[in-house]
Design a protein around this nucleic acid. Structure first.
Lengths: 153, 153
DNA sequence: GTGGCTGCAAATGATTTGCAGCTCT
DNA sequence: AGAGCTGCAAATCATTTGCAGCCAC
């Protein structure tokens, strides 16, 4: 984890930004909650536990900065808030999401499933792809089990 | 177009809603701008041309209603606003989008490119897919031409 | 001592809501 | 007269911005 912070620090420096204590605290929260899909408010509350003086605006500014540097991706699942998701280090493309319409859980798919699809799009639509967003909405495995338990009771 | 309005009217009725003049005006605007990706404000301004008494809140309420009935899909391209996109009649799945990061244009792909990918997700992640969102970000064909023109000048 | 960075409070902008009035039956 | 629907204005919520102070080099 320290190594990862160091690398993010270098990324900041090479874009002439500093890793201030507030920024570091924010990054640490993101690293500690890599599996989650935190909103700015969520991040703010978590950072506040460790660094109570931090302001919400600073968190927003830091998240914006990290988005710009492609350390995180800003995503939107259709509720009113933006969520921030750490990129896998070195990942060429953004991972995909499975959003459960019953329980709201969000799972990640790290595999790149779109290789073939992207070739088709680049060729047939003459579109030079830089990034993508793919989200499936449906029923997660947990809810499928839960549902079949209930119906058999 | 009249047929389509009739069918939407039936959909509303079967969910015990009425096709009021304001709702009809809103639906007509959506049909006339099927290619576009209008925000609520955009729709409001266009409806206002024909029916100046309409209120913005009514447009929001109508768009919400149409989303619930799956007549339109609410989408979000990462700018702060929701956009509303008519579903193709009878389409099992939502179409895909190509967002140009240079000019902002949004093109649609109606083909279902995800058939194989969905099979993999359903099987390997045990996820029952109900819908999806796929958006590519990159350079559209128009900007690619424009860019190469400029560099050869 | 200057520029980057911060916290706070105020501003903004999209969307939602409360409510009184209207419409159609 | 009742239910559904509307327009308006006010409220709400996420996010952004202005600004004075602070900190590190």
């Amino acid at each position: 984890m320290e190594g990862r912070i160091d690398r993010i620090k270098k990324q900041l420096h090479s874009a002439s930004y500093k890793l201030t204590p507030q920024r570091e605290a924010t990054v640490r929260v993101l690293l500690e909650h890599e599996e989650d899909h935190l909103s700015a408010e969520d991040v703010y509350l978590l950072v506040k536990d460790k660094s109570p003086e931090i302001g919400l605006a600073t968190v927003y500014r830091t998240l914006e900065l990290l988005t710009e540097l492609k350390v995180v991706d800003k995503i939107n699942f259709g509720d009113g808030v933006s969520r921030y998701d750490l990129r896998q280090e070195g990942a060429a493309h953004f991972h995909h999401h499975l959003v459960c319409i019953e329980c709201g859980a969000v799972d990640e798919i790290q595999d790149d499933l779109l290789g073939d699809v992207e070739k088709v799009v680049e060729k047939d639509w003459n579109f030079k792809i830089k990034d993508h967003r793919l989200t499936f909405h449906g029923i997660c495995w947990r809810c499928q089990e839960k549902d079949s338990d209930e119906s058999s009771e």
